[in-house]
């Protein structure tokens, strides 16, 4: 058991030394346009690009972080639930507000119309016809 503990302690020390290596630079941000070029210049000095077998070269030596931009760009949020642009959201809300106003006005007008309708109807029943201000709207309440 002592040997096992010793092995783990030595491994922890060694891994600390390894991770503090100064040559390798960890890149955890989205690659720029120059990243690929810089990376190839820094790293392909020990591999000859294989023009006869480029699929194998891609398989073994091409970094995923230069190839799969979705990791950086679409990691969050996804396209499916992408938020609408600000001006579009405003437009939608504006339209929604107008619709609500119209509905509310319609409901209000229904209530007013009902109270006035009886008198209008009674008036019209009198055959007087009335002026244009008393004329009831078509399909009211519809």
């Amino acid at each position: 058991m002592k040997k096992a503990i010793l092995i783990i302690i030595l491994s922890a020390i060694a891994s600390t030394i390894l991770l503090s290596g100064c040559y390798t630079q960890i890149k955890l941000t989205k690659p720029t346009e120059n990243t690929t070029k810089e990376w190839e210049e820094n790293n392909y000095h020990y591999y000859d690009p294989c023009y006869w077998c480029s699929p194998w070269h891609y398989y073994y030596y091409y970094p995923w972080w230069l190839d799969q931009n979705y990791w950086w760009e679409q990691h969050y949020p996804t396209t499916k639930y992408k938020a609408a642009p600000h001006h579009e959201r405003q437009e939608r809300q504006r339209g929604l507000g107008s619709a609500l106003d119209t509905i509310i006005q319609a409901i209000d007008s229904i209530g007013i119309g009902d109270s006035n309708g009886d008198s209008d109807n009674s008036g019209s029943d009198g055959g007087s016809g009335g002026d244009s201000n008393d004329r009831s709207s078509r399909r009211r309440g519809m």
């Binding site: 960890i26 990376w39 790293n43 970094p63």
Partner: peptide
């Protein structure tokens, strides 16, 4: 599991 790098490898 490779870690993204600008130079070297991890």
């Amino acid at each position: 599991i490779p870690v993204p790098t600008t130079r070297g490898g991890l």
